[in-house]
Write a protein that binds this DNA or RNA. Structure first.
Lengths: 150, 150
DNA sequence: TTAAGTGCAAAAGCTTTGCGGGTAG
DNA sequence: CTACCCGCAAAGCTTTTGCACTTAA
C-alpha cells in the first residue's frame, strides 16, 4: 500500500472517530497503521510486535481490542485460514488468497476471472452473503522446498 | 454422510494403517468416526467431546495428534475460517463454504458453477496449488436474527 | 515381544476480562 | 471535568511436549 493511501486511510479513521465521538488515541492510530503497512496477513501478536517497535509499552489487550474494533468499523478484515491464531487483512476490497496448508501463510492475489464468480442463491440456508474469496490452497515456496529436501 | 459410507471409510483407514504398519487403535477409529459423523466443521475440542461420549478417557493430546495424522493421510481436511480454533472438515472432495463472519460457523455447499473456477497461474509466487474453495462470507441465520433484534 | 500409541501432567501459545489510574475531548 | 481508554495482572481457552505405562501386531 502506498504511503499516500495509508495517510488517507488514517485520515478517514480520524473522521470516523470524530463522528462517533470516539477518542482517536496514539495507540489506535499506530495499530491501524501497523496493519496497513504490512504486506502479509499478521496475527494480533505480530501487529503488537510491529506497534511496540515505535510506541513502547502498548499492551497486548489493547491491540486485541482495537483490532476487533477496526474489523467492526470495516477498516480492516479478518482472513480465513486453516491455522489457530486469528489473522487480519489490510484489504477489504474484492481479492483472493493463496493459502499454504503447511505454514498457514496467506498471499493476496487479484484476478478478474476469480472476481467473476457467480454467487449462488443461499436463501435456503438462511445465510446472507456479503462478499466472497477464492482460496487457492497448496504449498508456498518455503514449504515446497522443505518438502523436496526430505 | 451415510452409515454405509462411514463404514467404508473406516475400512479404508484400516487398510492404510495395515499398509503402513501403523497400529489401528480404538482411539484412532473413534476419532475418525467422530469427524465423519458430524455434519458441521468441529474443533479438536468438539471432536474430543464426541469421542469421550462413547470411549471414556480418551485424552485431548491423543485427539490432537490423531486429527493431525488423519489430515496428513488425506482422510480429512482442515477448513479455512476467520476464528482461532482449528476446524476440521470431513470432506476432502471439491466443495465450497458459507462462512459466518460473526460466529465462525461453516456450512458446506456444492455448486457446479463454483467448481468451474479457472485456477490462475501461480508460478510467479512459487506457489503450488493443490485445490481450491470458494468462501461465501456473511452472516448465518442465528447471527442475522441477533443483528435484527438490536 | 517390542515398537509405537496413549494418558497424564505440565508448559506453551493465544485471547479475554476486571479494575484502577490516565487521557482525549 | 468526565467519560472512556489504556496498561497490568490474572484467568481462560487452545495446543503441544515429555515421560512412563499400555497395547496392537
Amino acid at each position: 500500500m502506498l504511503v499516500r493511501d495509508i495517510r488517507q486511510e488514517l485520515e478517514r479513521y480520524r473522521a470516523i472517530c470524530r463522528a462517533r465521538g470516539i477518542p482517536c488515541t496514539r495507540q489506535r492510530l499506530a495499530i491501524l497503521e501497523a496493519v496497513l503497512t504490512r504486506t502479509n496477513h499478521p496475527t494480533a501478536d505480530e501487529v503488537h510486535a510491529t506497534v511496540t517497535r515505535r510506541l513502547r509499552s502498548v499492551s497486548r489487550p489493547t491491540v486485541y481490542r482495537v483490532l476487533e474494533e477496526l474489523v467492526e468499523m470495516g477498516l480492516i478484515g479478518k482472513a480465513c485460514h486453516p491455522g489457530k491464531a486469528v489473522r487480519f487483512d489490510r484489504r477489504t476490497d474484492l481479492h483472493h488468497h493463496l493459502v499454504c496448508l503447511r505454514c498457514n501463510s496467506i498471499i493476496d492475489i487479484s484476478d478478474p476471472r476469480l472476481d467473476a464468480v457467480q454467487v449462488p442463491d443461499t436463501r435456503k440456508y438462511g445465510f446472507k452473503v456479503s462478499d466472497f474469496r477464492v482460496q487457492l490452497r497448496g504449498l508456498c515456496t518455503k514449504c515446497l522446498k522443505r518438502e523436496e529436501e526430505k
